[in-house]
Amino acid sequence: MSPALEARGVSKSYDGVLIVDHVDLVAEVGRITVIIGPNGAGKTTLFNCLSGVEPADAGAVWHRGDEVTGWSSDALARRGLARTFQRSSVFPTLSVADNLRIAAENHRRRGILRGLAGLPDPGGRRAVVVVGAVLADLGLTDVAEVRAGVLPSGTLRLVELGRALCGEPDTLLLDEPASGLDDTETEEFHQLLHRLAARDLAVVMVEHDLALVHEAADVVYVMVSGSVAASGPPGEVLGRIDVRSLLFGRTA
């Protein structure tokens, strides 16, 4: 079976500065793949190239065996490759439920003219059901009707994750999903990750919290200065002296 997401030789530079440098990455279904690395290593830029937010300068990306190099992010989202952002991209003027509903309603293309004429949406009922299930799964049911703009950042991270899930994806890219969460929330988030992976989802995430990485990751990629310095099972990779010195500057 082909991997959920595969990247070969992805490169990206800004103003002549090489940010991502020939990165190869494979994310398997049912696994949690974590990218770690010091700031400025190019993790978010790599994510942007993988999810079609910006085009890569070189390299190719495959999603479930099909080449999707150069696809736009909305097309990838409809294909089942969902992502969250480091900085919240929740729609502040909409309620939590409506935030999720947008993802549920748009993961298949539907006629605009139909909407203009005021005809009912054929997939509308299903969308509502999906939203309800995801809200319950993430424990967001009691804030479903709250305007997202007034919620604390920890909740917004969950809303963003919920939005990604409502597109019924097979591959999830999460950019620092645990930042801004407190210890309890992090713990719960971690359990959630395992539940997701068990549902045959491929999860790829950027994370700083090494404890979480140790606990949750199946595969770790260490990125330094735009390229992959090491990859493999977390116990093996994180134990290496050279990796530790790369991550902490000095040996910590």
Binding site: S73, D74, A77, A103, R163, A164, G167
Partner: peptide, 9 residues
């Protein structure tokens, strides 16, 4: 960006 990530064309 968020709308795109939701699959909105």
């Amino acid at each position: 960006a968020g709308a795109l990530a939701c699959g909105v064309d």
